[in-house]
Every structure is written in C-alpha cells, then in structure tokens.
Amino acid sequence: MTFPMNSTSVLSAEPEPQAPRPADGDTAASPDSAAETRNLPRLGTLRTSGGRLEAIARGETVTTEDHAGVALDETVLEIEHFRLWYGSKQALFDVTLKIPRGKVTSLIGPSGCGKSTLLRSVNRMNDLIDTVRIDGTMRLNGDSIYHKGVDVIELRKRMGMVFQKPNPFPMSIYENVVYPLRIDGVRDRATLDDVMENSLRGAALWDEVRDRLHESALSLSGGQQQRLCIARAIAAEPEVLLLDEPCSALDPIATSKVEDLISELRGSYSVLIVTHNMQQAARVSDYTAFMYLGRVIEYGLTPTVFTNPHCKETEDYVTGRFG
C-alpha cells in the first residue's frame, strides 16, 4: 500500500494526538489550512462565537462551516442537502458533505446526532427501515444514489460496510471473506482463493487465520472477527468503505491493529468512519466532520478541526466540554 503524502500522515504518526501541532511540512500538501492555522491567533477571531446550539433549538437552519481545504480534493461521494426522517421525527437536517477520494474522513459528534444514520444512508441500508423518508441527493462517483431507477443491490456492491459490532456470518472464515463474490455467483476457485488471501492480508488477519480458513468464523476473537468483517468489506474492492464505530467493541491492541489497517487502506480506498474516540479520529483521518443534532456543524481538515476549529461548539466538543 502506498502512503500518500499529505498533511495528516505526520499527524497520524503522532503518539499524543491531544496536542497535535501542525508541522511545517503541511504547507506543501494543503497550503490553505496551514495558512489558516499559522495566521490565526490561538483563540482565533474567525471562530464564530457559538450561538448555534441556540439557533438549532429555535429551529433555524444552521449552515455547515466548511473549511476551504476540503474543496481541493477530488470527490468520491457527494452529499447535498440531504434530509432524513424516521416517521415524523427528522434525524438529518440539510447535510451537505463532499467526501474526498482516497482519504479517510471521520464523522464525530455526540451520541444520537445521526452519524450512523448518515452512514447508513450512503449505502441505502435505511431502505430496510419502513418508516424512513429522505430528501436531497447523494452521488457516488457522479452516479445518483437515490435516483428512482438505481439498483440498490448493485449500489451496495460498490461500497463496503463494517458495523459497530462484528457480525461474521455463521460459516467458515473462507466463506465469510468471499461472501460478496459468492452472491455474485463467482465459482472459480483460483479467483476466490486469490481474493480471499488478498483481503485477509489487507485486513491484517492472514497470518492469524491462514491455518484455519475452514473453521467457523465464530470461533475467532472479537478483534479478529472485526478484522474479518473488514476483509469481507474490502473483498469486492468497493469504491467507498463505510466504517461505523469499528473499534467500539475492541480492546486497545485490536483497536490499534484496526487503526493501522485504516491508515494502510488510505489511498487505495476512500474511507468514511464514524467514531466516538477523538484520539482515533485525530490519528486516522484526513478530514473530520463534526455533527450535532442531525446537522454537520463543521467540516474540515482534521488538524484544523481539532486544534483550531472555526466553531465554538466544535471546540467545546473536541476538548470534551460537552457531548
């Protein structure tokens, strides 16, 4: 795997993400953000002085604070004015995000703010819930996701998804990994073997399971199961990888393995990850979107969002003052 040189490769190597200081090398990759970071005073004047929470409470529309650096990258997934209701309860309000290709984007925000809902909207998992209504557009590489004629099955095949809780299927490790191919009717043993090995290597699981490929996947440990789910998600070479709190059920060692893995996937895959772990978001992601009550409050380069956010609410959240 190749490591694209960008602003956060330095950051992700930082052992202490609480105080990530943008290095000088940043200027090369994303001059704008670096400029912002450098030119602004510590408690910048650009930072809006809050009031958003009150505005939301009053039912007013709150626009996303988009950092300029976001627009530079090529977009893989475009979300525009997306709104979603569970029955009569609105869960997403006018979400607009551009997810860059080949980068890791993290979604953070307090519990119940709609991160999972947004993630599940991307591969239309919310279709499975009868009460869900949506409005707005999403485009994957230019193809509309919610257009009438879209084949949901084909659409989901273009994305991989990993859930909060490992959900291996009740079958062998081997069959678990090649499941996306099996449902496509791939029979060729060589192809299957190939994909299986590559995916397991990609998920950093190969060495641990190479001797027991035909044992039940349920015999694996929780961390192994989660990496197996990642292997399954990348088996079909998806255009976007959606990770919903992939480490929340894992111990620190398994977590760090999964994080390493995400760092390795950067470049070859576009990753959208939901996490509650601020350090994790800071370590693994290039971009961060902060969500609150169904709105995206701020979206920008991870170092900026964590060290020099434009919105007071974001700062409060990332420094642990609320949420």
């Binding site: 998992m125 099955i153 989901r156 959900n167 299927f169 009740p170 499941y179 449902i183 496509d184 399954r232």
Partner: peptide
C-alpha cells in the same frame, strides 16, 4: 439483525 444487515451491506438480495 446484524447478520442480515451484514449480508445486505455486501450487496446480497
């Protein structure tokens, strides 16, 4: 339900 979701997410009918 997580198993079903996992399968649907893989693009299974």
């Amino acid at each position: 339900g997580s198993m079903r979701e996992g399968s649907y997410a893989c693009g299974a009918s």
